[in-house]
Every structure is written in C-alpha cells, then in structure tokens.
Write a protein that binds this DNA or RNA. Structure first.
Lengths: 177, 177
DNA sequence: CTATTTTAGTTCACTGGTGAAATATGAGCC
DNA sequence: GGCTCATATTTCACCAGTGAACTAAAATAG
C-alpha cells in the first residue's frame, strides 16, 4: 500500500489543477474534505488490522463496546443501529455473529414483544477487557506530537464539522410528503 | 438515521464509563479517534448521497477525478490503486464500470505489455464538468463557521495525524523475512 | 539464451453493508 | 372488538471491497 503522505501530495496537486479549470471550486474546503476522508479511511484500516488478531471486525467490536459501556450491559438492535450508524439489516448480522461467539445474548423483551433485548455476557466482558489494553499504545501513538491544546483544538473542529453535517442534512430535504 | 451529534454524545458518555473501568486508557486520544471515524464516515455518506443522482459511487467518482486531474488524462490501474487506496481487484471492477459507461478507455501499453493504460474520454470530462459544480455548495456548507485560521489549523492537524499513521505502520513490522 | 523471479492485471470465492419486502407486534381510532 | 397505521426486526437480493490463486509479460541471474 502507498503511504498516506504520497496520496495527500497527489491529492494536493490534483485539486490544484482542477481548481485552475473550475475556478468556482471551493479549493480549501475540497482539500479539507479529501484530507479528512483519506485520514479517516486510513485510520479505520489501521484499527481493522489491529483487531484482526482477535478475529473481530470493526463494526462487531464497536457494537460490543457500546454494550460494554452501558451501565446495565444491554440494549436493543434499533438503539445499537442509531449509535453505530449501521442499518438494521447489518445489525442483525452483527448480533448473529456475536451470539454465535457467546459474547452477547439475544432475548425477547417483556414489555414490547416486537423488541429484542441484547445483553453482553460475562465472556463478552472478559473478551473486551483482554482485547482493549493492547490497543492503547497504538491509539496514543497516533497522536504523538499533539500538544494538549492541539488535541482540544482538533476535538473542537471535528465537533463543529459534525454539527455542520447534521444541519446540512436538515437544509436539503429529501422529499416533502 | 440518528443525528451525528447524538452519536457523539453517546460516545462521550460511553468512553467516560469505560475510562473509569480501565484507567490506563488514553481517554482523550480514544475520544479523538472515535470522533474522527464518526465524522469521516458521516461525511463519506453525505458525499455518496450527493453523487447518487448521477448514478456513480464514491470510489468510481474518485478514480475518474484522478484521471480528470491528470495533465494527460491517463494512468494505469496500479497507479490508480495507490492513489485511491483501493486494492487491484476493486480497481478492475471500477475500470470495468467506467468503461461500460464510456467515461474511460482501457488499452494495452506499448512499452510494457503487462501494463494497461486507462484514459478519460471527452465524455468522461463532460460528465465531471457537469457533476462537479452542483457539489460545491455542499462542500462549502460543511465548513460554514470555519475561519481561515481554523481551516488552516484543521488541515495542519489532519496532515500531522496522517504522518503519524504512516509511521505507525513502519513502527510495527508485519513480519521479518 | 534459458530459467527464475518479479511485476501487472484479472478471476474467483468470500466478507461486509444496504434497500426493499416480509413478519409480527403495538397504538390509535370508530 | 376490529381496522388501520406505525414500529422493530428479519429475510432476501444485490452492491462494494478483499485475499488468494492464476496468467502473462518484463527483468535478472547464471
């Protein structure tokens, strides 16, 4: 795989040339967009690799982590879909996979029988506690050279961007029913 | 779909609770990592939606854009793989799709007959020039409220992170042959 | 020059993720 | 109660992306 730095160099040159052809293009914003997507994808890939020795993929892991982080260790597919930004279809697959490994249980809800209650098992908790610590050095290393002020700044800018994206979706209505 | 802001709130709470259980966790870095991944994924999705009316997906579009941005409008599958961070397998599929739509051509290289030369067609150029401008307002809108200084800062931090990620891969050798 | 190794690209089988339809339960209305 | 409508999950068919095996053409070694 090519190094990210090389891809970024190419991107910079490419956007520079396109900007000359199409002067209306918001060049700075286009660069930031590509930059964010490239770095995000690369980081994702890094994590996927780091999880591979444990034979778990990123979305299964994230789902399990949400359950682990819950005070009662339980949730429902619908809720997990919301917080993982996964479709319901995929959550069914994820739950199937985690149940098969004994990391979670699936049961019917008493109050609302449409609902399914998903709960992390003791085995699931142990799995997380074994898997997580070896990841810490890599997560820290990704931000080496970042001062506390830079980390705060980065966090603030990402949250601001998130807010803009939420309002973007509002501003452009899909359809008027 | 849940709003990104809600997901971020949940993530903050979740990491807070996990941090109490596992005090070794680099909490600030973990938050930044999740933030980046969530925002990146959401942005990606937004772009995918914006491209959908043109019946083209993000990776096909990106490949076409690289060709468009090249002075000579041509490249090879291998080169495109590097700069799009796609596997060779997927590039074959992308090229097939773009050839079928008449946006690129595929031909054998004269100098090196293993190589395939991919070239954007006039139709491909027109397609890009028609598709791109309507995207500009959304790209700009994503960064509303960002001062020039903030944009520069964001760019700098993302590039710094990219550099760290490149060195992360170096630091952890896959195997010693 | 032939034999081996390396490089470029494709094919195949599989994993991961999505939209649309199906199923089943709950909620509101008359 | 029965009728309609909304909600929660699953199933099915498909799109997107990957690793491993294959093919063909350089490059290199002896």
């Amino acid at each position: 795989m090519a190094r990210l730095g090389d891809c970024i160099t190419m991107m910079d040159e490419g956007i520079g040339r396109v900007g000359q052809i199409l002067p209306d293009m918001p060049e700075a914003e286009a660069r930031l967009t590509r930059l964010l997507l490239m770095v995000g994808r690369s980081f994702d890939e890094t994590i996927e690799q780091a999880l591979k020795p444990n034979s778990i993929n990123h979305s299964d892991f994230l789902t399990l982590m949400i359950l682990y982080s819950r005070p009662d260790g339980s949730s429902t597919p619908g809720e997990l879909c919301e917080y993982t930004s996964q479709g319901a279809t995929n959550m069914t697959r994820i739950a199937n996979a985690l149940v098969k490994r004994g990391l979670i249980t699936r049961g019917a809800s008493e109050e609302d029988r449409r609902r399914v209650v998903i709960r992390i098992t003791p085995s699931g908790r142990r799995f997380v506690q074994k898997l997580l610590p070896p990841l810490f050095p890599r997560v820290s290393a990704a931000f080496t050279g970042f001062s506390d002020a830079e980390k705060r700044s980065f966090s603030r800018l990402l949250r601001k961007l998130a807010d803009n994206l939420d309002h973007l979706d509002e501003a452009s209505p899909k359809d008027a029913p």
